[in-house]
Design a protein around this nucleic acid. Structure first.
Lengths: 141, 141
DNA sequence: CTATGTGCAAAATGTTTGCAGACGA
DNA sequence: TCGTCTGCAAACATTTTGCACATAG
């Protein structure tokens, strides 16, 4: 995996820097879909000179080489996901956490949309909104 | 339709103002999914004192009373849609326009997701990305 | 050695807020 | 008349940019 990002960066003419590796590894090791600030805060301890600008610039590159997806779950900030497979996300309207929805087969749905439009489709994003199990329990009180 | 927004506003304890009617009517009469600034610019001619802040405040209210949906198509700004039915949107990655995808049956897909998660789902948004017919033609040159 | 990358601060962008005067009910 | 609304300007949050210095290759 580290090999993957290293060679991918080199291949596309980008330099391999400790910051880029750290940012990607942090993202790849979580399912929390952090935004730039969360990533920045997390890396502060290990990389005290890390800057938010570097996080943003790195994400742009990682998106370009296909290693991350940028999520837009109706919030003020973008979130990032190292899982680039096509899967829906669900956000809790109470606590704001964003989770993956796995094992969903969207082929038929996508095909239906492809036929219903004259666009040359290349990508899609599905967002669901609701209340997570934990917040449902809290609401009972 | 005008009756609808008027009575809905009153019902929920909001006042009916020319600005609110103008903003809603403008949005209801287009399929372009404008953002706040587009709406503001459009209304400038008729309402020279209209302010951006009023557009934002009004959208918040219209969302609350269920007359508009707020779209998040991976851009820097939010777009607004007076068609509150559950339908996917497709954005052209070339020219940036956002269109409705009509006559799509998402029931099975949504049901699948509902079963695959423990959330109490209340809403969803589907975004597709691609190249619109007009931009496809341009690319041939 | 050279071109690219980093980190800081400043700028840009989109949205929200506070408040004085205006206005709907 | 009274409470809400408008419109302006200022505040705010997120993201982008410019540039001097650092560093990967």
């Amino acid at each position: 995996m580290e090999i993957c990002i290293t060679s991918l960066l080199r291949e596309k003419g980008f330099k391999v820097t400790p910051q880029r590796l750290a940012i990607y590894n942090m993202l790849a090791s979580t399912h929390s879909h952090p935004n730039a600030e969360m990533i920045f805060n997390e890396l502060q301890a290990m990389y005290p000179t890390m800057s938010l600008a570097t996080v943003y610039k790195t994400m742009e590159i990682l998106k370009e080489i296909g290693l991350v997806k940028i999520l837009n779950a109706g919030e003020d900030s973008f979130r990032y996901d190292a899982d680039t497979s096509d899967h829906p996300h669900v956000r809790c309207m109470e606590c704001g956490q964003v989770e993956d929805v796995d094992n969903i087969d969207s082929v038929d749905f996508v095909k239906q949309v492809a036929q219903g439009t004259n666009y040359k489709l290349v990508n899609q994003q599905f967002y669901f909104y609701g209340i997570c199990p934990s917040c449902q329990r809290k609401e009972l009180n």
